[in-house]
Amino acid sequence: MLLKQRNTSFRIGLCIAACIAAMALVGYVWTPYDPDMIIGSEKFLAPSLRHLFGTDNFGRDIFSRTMVGIGTTFFIAVGTVFIGGVVGIIVGAFTGYFGGVVDEVLMRINDALTAFPNILLALVFIAVLGFGKYNVILALGVAFIPSFARVVRTEFARHRNMNYVKSARLMGAGHLRIIFRHILPNTRGVLLPALMIGFNNAVLAEASMSYLGIGVSAPDVSLGYMLKEAQSYMLTAPWYVLCVGLVIVLLILGVSMMGDGMGKGEK
């Protein structure tokens, strides 16, 4: 019963996320209309078969723009998780595995940083780095390191004294080998859901930052940036805000359902 439920949750999530990912992938090579083509006579058209999500204030096709926007959002989220994940795993693995003074100091700093929300941390980095797509990735990636490092550290500290690690050490495996070949694969049950949550937080953070006008800026398009545009025409073109928002919701929902399903699989 439980097993079945988990699978349905995971499967539904996978379907939703895959659909949206497919939109993004197709959007890289082909969109129904040129996402930047301005047609003065086709302003604020309501959704129809010709324009699935309608058109915006410049007569641009919102569906095409959404496809490109998802692409940017995806790119930023993946990049963020990659930077945060890789550095977080390395920091967490070494501190958790070796422990000691360095561990203590780093974890103190880590605690202090997690007292501070990811997004605000990223905002501060953006203030330092300046705007733009790549700076958003860098800022978010760095801001996400502490939370990943904490998760990984806890796991490594737990596994460090387990028997399989001891026996690997007795057989003469080096520390690096033990960390990456023995322990790391065993932490995937915790790590994968954490990466998924991280992905969602990154989508959320990118959307928030671009919405605030300090993330992605024109000519780039991202979901958050579109929402910012859409809000100004909320009453004339409500479909604009609704369609773009719905895509974000679905993306986050899909990934979180996948993560949930996987988390339950561990028990």
Partner: peptide, 14 residues
């Protein structure tokens, strides 16, 4: 599950 997936600022817009 659904509510958790909605970004707060989008709820604000709605």
């Amino acid at each position: 599950q659904l509510v958790m997936a909605v970004p707060p600022f989008f709820i604000g817009i709605l």
